[in-house]
Design a protein around this nucleic acid. Structure first.
Length: 262
DNA sequence: CGCATTTGACCTGCGC
DNA sequence: GCGCAGGTCAAATGCG
């Protein structure tokens, strides 16, 4: 009846996950996936210009459950230049600036609430113009919470990878300025392959790791919004340039996404 | 029957 | 020191 007040509240929370798998050791394809999304950074202006009938992006393709439209922008830790993005940027910035990661969080959610001062799990946020909040990325996510955010009339949803050994979390919220824009923030990296049942998805195929133990690079190397240049445009160049593993994305992007940059 | 979603409560950290 | 906001958990419920 009661929530978790009685029994060892705080102890039971510690699911079987937590320690055991060092995401840092397994970050490669998952990171790549994140980078992949980030590589599709589009200026805020592009976001508005993007139409639902635009190009099917990650998760889109043939997945009926993913009426996604297009990725607007992406960002990672270090996002500080917010003078470029007009809308959403503020939100994304807030997201990144608020939460960094939580390598210390093992079993207590309390630790998780480190006010975003910890580090360890890379975060990657990107905006997508979509009708649905939950973007299909090939993985199985379970919603574990929803909260109303102060700066937005839309609630923020919290998702967690259903794979027990996976600690990847995802936050999804809509832009208060553009309801059509969904801000998705990935936290952590998948330490497993895409579920077989989802492997048929385009996204799954794209995100599917070529092989475990491949070249790994810390996504933390990614620089914020990709707007380091200080300009509204071509931030991607900077973004990509900072990604040692861009080669992977580079190899994928042209195959999946046509050039959207001006 | 199993899994995912929903919802309320609880906890932590930060700001004032 | 108090209040606010954000984040997470856990039980309950619904659906496939």
């Amino acid at each position: 009846m009661s929530r978790r007040g009685g029994e060892s509240a705080g102890k039971l929370r510690s699911s079987g996950t937590a320690k055991g798998v060092s995401s840092s050791e397994l970050l490669d394809w998952s990171t790549r996936r994140e980078l992949f999304s980030g590589a599709f950074y589009l200026s805020p202006e592009a976001v508005s210009a993007v139409k639902e009938d635009q190009t099917p992006l990650v998760g889109g393709g043939e997945t009926p459950a993913t009426p996604n439209s297009s990725i607007s922008s992406a960002s990672t830790e270090g996002a500080e230049n917010d003078e470029n993005i007009h809308k959403g940027k503020k939100e994304v910035k807030d997201i990144l600036g608020d939460e960094e990661d939580d390598s210390s969080m093992k079993d207590s959610k309390a630790k998780k609430k480190g006010a975003g001062k910890k580090e360890g799990q890379p975060r990657f946020a990107f905006m997508t113009k979509s009708k649905v909040d939950h973007l299909e990325d090939g993985y199985r996510w379970r919603k574990y919470g929803q909260k109303a955010v102060k700066n937005s009339p839309y609630p923020r949803s919290y998702y967690r990878c259903t794979t027990q050994k996976c600690q990847v979390k995802k936050r999804v919220e809509r832009s208060f300025e553009d309801p059509s824009v969904v801000i998705t923030t990935y936290e952590g990296q998948h330490n497993h392959y895409v579920p077989a049942n989802l492997r048929g998805n385009v996204a799954a195929g794209m995100f599917a790791p070529p092989r475990p133990g491949g070249p790994s690079f810390a996504s933390q190397k990614l620089y914020g919004y990709g707007v380091e240049g200080g300009t509204d445009n071509v931030p991607r160049q900077q973004f990509v340039d900072e990604v040692p593993g861009y080669g992977l994305l580079q190899d994928i992007i042209p195959h999946v996404f046509p050039k959207q940059e001006p």
